[in-house]
Amino acid sequence: MSDILSITGLTKQYSSPRGKNKILHNLHLTVKSNEFICILGPSGCGKSTLLRCIAGFEDYSGEIICNSKVVKKPSVERVMVFQDYNQLFPWKTVEQNIQYPMKIQGIKDENDLRCRCEDMLKKVGLYEYRKFYPHELSGGMKQRVAIARAIALIPQIVLMDEPFAALDAITRNRLQGELYNISRTENMTVMFVTHNIQEAITLGTRILIMNSNGEIVVDEENNLPHPVRPSTKGYGELWDRYSKILQGVDE
């Protein structure tokens, strides 16, 4: 598999009236096509910041290269699902929210638009809500629409920032399965931030753990056979190890 993304010496700092606040230091990371990378780390360690840099929303120093091009601004090849519940356009219905980015991409055929939209909505379980406006949905429902909107574009890289945080266990399990399958069949590369070790082990083909200084302290392949369940051999051991590391890095 080829490298789709390579990050070298990424350093990101925010400057505020209180001074400069360095979040990421000299970070290196190479991502191969079709990897499903789960990122764990204590709150505030810079996971969202890393995704935002890759998405092209932030200025940074160092180098991020995607498809052999330097990342300078956002692009549809790297679609972001934000951590924010309010990322759908409130002036568009659920359906219009999903179709709009496709239209921007030049998909004109009404039938095609509708089919893809309906298909995605069924996958996230919100088909009945297609005519609703975002303010009429719950936080978790909005998040599911946002995922549908991003996936419907079949981007090369999806950057997901805790997309399932607001979901109940059953819906979450179902969507995890759907997401994993789509990413495999559509050959998508996924970078997925989560606080849930179970989720990371279930979904990730590779797992990163960041410490509170914004450094990657664990970067390893997840070789448990798919579909991963808590009963899978090696799961418990892995869970314990990550849990200990996370407790250790969080000070």
Binding site: A55, F57, K73, P74, S75, V76, R78, V79, M80, F82, D84, N86, Q87, F89, Y100, P101, I104, Q105, L153
Partner: peptide
């Protein structure tokens, strides 16, 4: 977020 999403979709 709205603006970033818009930019993201090209």
């Amino acid at each position: 977020t709205y603006i970033e999403a818009g930019k993201n979709y090209g």
